[in-house]
């Protein structure tokens, strides 16, 4: 210790005496602050060890967070206080040096690029052009496999679902839905048979089946046969952004999308009555076969779900 002080008498070479007020701590009562900081460190240390212990015995998750968080927090507070109150209070100053170089150097730099590079390339324009062409072509050619391998082309997939003429409507478990299934005013989600457990069946073909009355129900002109015995089917994909239209407001006979509250009137062909959805939900034409099963007359007559460029 004594050698230390003997060797390291602080002498400022930039004009500060060792007892300069800039070097004094900011705290008015450094002793007190020191004790408070020590206390913080002790608490932090104890909590950090507690974290280890809690982890070791596999205590409840919140104890892990509480001990770790508390530990880091107290250590941090102590350290900040140390920096703020016990270290030289300053303020200190530093000069800024202009970032820009001297005019000569700028000129030299620009000249090196323009003159030297320009001279070499200009004299060999054809070579430069060929090289540029080759690399450019590679860039474009490389872009294609890079992009194109990412996925299939959309082709017709967005225009069709897997409902066909005669497809049975089944529930989530694959059970065929028959005419006695639904009470008036209730709904269920159906899928084309065989696809109820596939991604496509779930994401694209999902259809909401509503029993709206006991008689054939006509939603729009030209759809006279589509809703036999009051069974109506609409695509469950919201025409806004494709959320499943999962809610049925029975009194108002509205299908409601919980995402942005689009509401579709089930009685008139699911014309949107409220919200951002721009189009009705496509209606699936149904028939009831001799055994009483509910089946599709055909696919939807228009693309289901949200809008896209190629959709007319």
């Amino acid at each position: 210790m004594s050698q230390m002080s003997e060797h390291r008498t602080p002498v400022s070479i930039q004009g500060l005496a060792a007892d300069d007020p800039h070097l004094a701590p900011a705290a008015r009562h450094p002793r007190l602050v020191e004790r408070v900081i020590a206390l913080n460190f002790v608490v932090g240390l104890v909590l950090v060890i507690g974290f280890g212990a809690c982890y070791w015995v596999n205590a409840a998750p919140w104890t892990l967070g509480a001990t770790m968080g508390g530990g880091l927090f107290f250590l941090g507070v102590g350290l900040v206080a140390w920096g703020k109150y016990l270290m030289p209070r300053g303020p200190f100053v530093e000069e800024r040096h202009p970032l820009a170089s001297a005019a000569v150097e700028r000129d030299a730099f620009a000249a090196a690029i323009v003159e030297r590079g320009g001279g070499v390339v200009k004299r060999r324009k054809v070579l430069g052009g060929l090289l540029g062409g080759g690399l450019g072509a590679f860039g474009i050619v490389a872009l294609f496999p890079l992009l194109r391998s990412l996925g299939p082309l959309p082709k017709g997939t967005l225009f069709h679902t897997d409902w066909r003429s005669g497809t049975y409507a089944v529930d989530q478990t694959g059970r065929r839905v028959s005419v006695g299934e639904l009470a008036i005013g209730s709904i269920m989600t159906v899928f084309p048979e065989g696809l109820e457990n596939t991604d496509r069946g779930q994401a694209v073909d999902q259809t909401v089946l509503i029993r709206i009355s006991n008689e054939n129900f006509v939603t729009q002109k030209g759809r006279e046969t589509w809703a036999p015995q009051g069974y109506l089917a609409y695509s469950k994909l919201c025409t806004h952004l494709g959320c499943p239209v999962g809610l049925y407001e029975q009194q108002l006979q509205l299908l409601v999308c919980p995402c942005h509250q689009s509401m579709f009137n089930a009685t008139n062909g699911a014309i949107p009555e409220f919200g951002p959805a721009p189009r009705p939900l496509p209606q699936l034409p149904l028939y009831i076969d001799a055994q009483g099963y509910i089946r599709a007359q055909s696919d939807y007559h228009e693309p289901v779900g949200p809008g896209f460029w190629e959709r007319s």
Binding site: T63, F73, G83
Partner: peptide, 30 residues
């Protein structure tokens, strides 16, 4: 520029602050 030097003042304060941020996050997580 006027303020505190990187070493040791700012380093102490900022490291402490990092511990505080991590600590508060852990408390929120808990």
């Amino acid at each position: 520029v006027v303020g505190s030097p990187m070493f040791p003042v700012f380093m102490a304060k900022t490291t402490g602050f990092m511990l505080i941020v991590a600590g508060v996050t852990a408390l929120l997580g808990a």
